[in-house]
């Protein structure tokens, strides 16, 4: 009981820290101290964190190369917008529809394709992502290629913050649970995992569905902030962007994914001042970082309390 008291104390402290952070963000935004431009970047950052962390569960922890993440984001974005914009339902219903829709899509796509290995899975998921896009392009109810314009701006700081925290809590929890150990065993050695009696397909599908669900959440937040969605926003290039964050952060590191998402968003914003060569610089940075740090910024390590404690200890 002694130990649990200590944990309880820590938990309270952490909840307080999170709450304080939220309040601070809310304060900066509502007083206008954080200019709109930075607000938009902060929003992109949160959405990218959700996308990167959810893809990192699939690519980094489960070791299944998926190139269709933008497709799930598209499903989430469209599902939520149909609810709020077409059917005039509240945002929370839109969010739920996005999560469920994307999870369902993840399940439908995951079950047949996750038997595939490595690059075959990559290309199959890429194919599915593109199919989702082509299908959306041909549904007139959701605007065809022009998409849906004039989406209500429901994505507030509160929603963003809560969603980002929720994603982190759920995915970190999942990874540290017995499910997570099974999932990582699939990555490390699928054959050995199977021999140990782990139903590898089941765990792959679980990771895939959870990852897809959060991509859907990101899609809903995206749609209700950026005013318009169209199929063209969700091509395989978008999937690549997310993959870049995951690999840059380090495969199998949630903190890495978070840092890389922040880094890439900030980099994109920074490069805006060089309109003519921004994509060239982006490409060069990508190549150079990969050559000098192929394992990603964090490798498969995490920044946790232990790391900090060690640093602290060192200083003392």
């Amino acid at each position: 009981m002694q130990g649990s008291g200590k944990i309880g104390g820590r938990l309270i402290a952490e909840v307080a820290a999170v709450a304080a952070l939220f309040m601070l963000g809310q304060f900066l935004i509502s007083t206008g101290m954080l200019e709109q431009y930075y607000q938009i970047i902060l929003t992109s950052m949160c959405i990218n964190i959700i996308l990167a962390v959810s893809l990192s569960l699939i690519n980094g922890f489960t070791g299944q190369l998926s190139l269709g993440h933008a497709g799930f984001m598209a499903v989430g974005a469209y599902a939520s917008v149909v609810m709020t914009n077409r059917l005039d339902l509240p945002f929370i219903i839109g969010i739920l529809a996005a999560c469920l829709g994307a999870a369902l899509a993840g399940f439908i796509i995951g079950v047949p394709t996750l038997r595939l290995k490595g690059d075959y899975l990559a290309i199959a998921t890429l194919g599915f992502g593109e199919i989702i896009r082509v299908v959306l392009q041909n549904i007139d109810y959701v605007g065809g290629p022009s998409g849906i314009m004039g989406i209500e701006k429901y994505t507030t700081w509160a929603w963003l913050f809560a969603s980002t925290i929720l994603t982190l809590v759920v995915i970190v929890n999942l990874i540290n649970s017995s499910y997570g150990r099974a999932i990582i065993s699939v990555r490390e050695d699928e054959v050995a995992a199977e021999l140990m009696g782990i139903n590898t397909t089941r765990y792959k599908v679980i990771a895939f569905v959870v990852g897809a669900m959060f991509a859907g959440l990101a899609g809903a937040l995206y749609a209700h902030y950026f005013y318009i969605i169209k199929p063209e926003s969700f091509t395989f290039m978008k999937s690549f962007d997310i993959l870049v964050m995951v690999v840059l952060g380090g495969l199998g590191s949630t903190t890495g994914a978070v840092i890389a998402a922040i880094f890439v968003t900030a980099l994109t914003a920074f490069l805006q001042s060089f309109p003519a060569i921004r994509m060239i610089l982006y490409a060069l940075i990508l190549i150079i970082v990969m050559i000098y740090r192929p394992q990603g910024l964090m490798g498969n390590k995490e920044i946790g309390r232990k790391t900090l404690a060690r640093l602290w200890g060192g200083k003392r």
């Binding site: 944990i7 820590r10 938990l11 952490e14 820290a17 999170v18 952070l21 925290i165 982190l168 809590v169 970190v172 929890n173 540290n176 949630t254 903190t255 978070v258 995490e302 920044i303 946790g304 309390r305 232990k306 790391t307 900090l308």
Partner: peptide, 11 residues
């Protein structure tokens, strides 16, 4: 415990 640790850092 572990989760909240990471969480704190991320935050």
């Amino acid at each position: 415990r572990k989760i909240s640790k990471k969480l704190a850092i991320i935050m």
